[in-house]
């Protein structure tokens, strides 16, 4: 269909996102992403366990700073991500279409994703007020419980919702001060990498979100077993895989959050309870005296 005089388009190289950089997988492997008709769309990095290990190091390194950032700042940054995404609206629609989503649905999905980011940006300085408590203990002490981020969260995001499913999991984790390592949708990985570019342009500190592409089958065990990961989120693993995630996660008492059967386009897929999933309750006591 190209005319003789048409310009040759420049194709994008989709690389993974670790510690605020876009390296290729250290393994040098790739897999082909094809459109529904079988045409090659892109070479996708087939991330390895070492990539995952590097990503966890980056996430751990970013945790102290991000978790100590003020709620106001985190809210500002979430909002900035939404702004950046809105600005690249058409690109994301095009990528979704390229991966087989209808134009109408793609447009809706990008809209919903921007709105979801705005939704969580608004929660940044409020979920704490909803879920914390002052506890009236029966002694001369001031006692209060607050939420603190669980730590480094590994995420196996939905396969069938390449952008909205991705962001619906990342946003509540990072708005709560966690850092994360995400394994993008295997069948629709493009938006995840483009979203990394959005993050990169949105004042999100390096290492707060790290995004890998690759094979579920190869990486799920790593995501569940890594001893320096504090929580693992999974969204569409079959029963057998879910069971193995629970078993692997037990070794360092990782929190396991199952979001199987969530309808990502639905309003029920957003709530402060999603933020709370990757929070710990800390209770502090102090005497009251002169």
């Amino acid at each position: 269909m190209a005319e003789a005089s048409a310009r040759v388009p420049v194709e994008k190289t989709y690389k993974i996102y670790i510690g605020g950089k876009f390296p290729r997988t250290e393994s040098g492997r790739y897999f082909l992403l094809q459109d529904p008709k079988g045409a090659v769309i892109a070479n996708i990095c087939r991330g390895s366990r070492k990539d995952f290990r590097n990503a966890v190091v980056a996430a751990r390194g970013a945790f102290a700073g991000w978790s100590a950032a003020t709620a106001y700042l985190r809210g500002q940054i979430l909002y900035r991500i939404a702004e950046m995404l809105e600005g690249r609206h058409d690109q994301f629609v095009a990528e979704l279409v390229l991966q087989g989503v209808s134009k109408r649905k793609a447009k809706k999905e990008v809209d919903a994703t921007v709105d979801r980011l705005i939704y969580y940006a608004g929660w940044a300085d409020k979920y704490q007020q909803v879920f914390s408590s002052v506890n009236p203990v029966n002694s001369s002490h001031f006692n209060f419980s607050v939420l603190e981020p669980t730590g480094v969260v590994s995420m196996l995001v939905p396969d069938d919702s390449g952008l909205l499913g991705l962001v619906s999991n990342i946003a509540p984790a990072i708005v709560g001060g966690n850092t994360c390592v995400v394994l993008a949708s295997e069948s629709m990985p493009l938006c995840a990498i483009s979203f990394a570019e959005v993050l990169h342009a949105s004042d999100v500190p390096a290492g707060v979100v790290n995004i890998l592409t690759g094979f579920r089958e190869e990486l799920t065990t790593q995501f569940a077993s890594h001893m320096d990961v504090n929580a693992v989120v999974f969204c569409d693993s079959e029963v057998g895989v879910a069971k193995s995630i629970h078993i692997e996660a037990a070794d360092n008492m990782k929190r396991v959050i199952s979001r199987v059967d969530t309808r990502w386009t639905d309003d029920s897929a957003q709530s402060p309870y999603f933020v709370r999933d990757t929070q710990e309750t800390k209770t502090t006591w102090h005497p009251i005296g002169g």
Binding site: S140, I288, G289, G290
Partner: peptide, 10 residues
Amino acid sequence: ITPVDEVGVN
């Protein structure tokens, strides 16, 4: 001088 905590003393 080392401080004194009233609740601890009580």
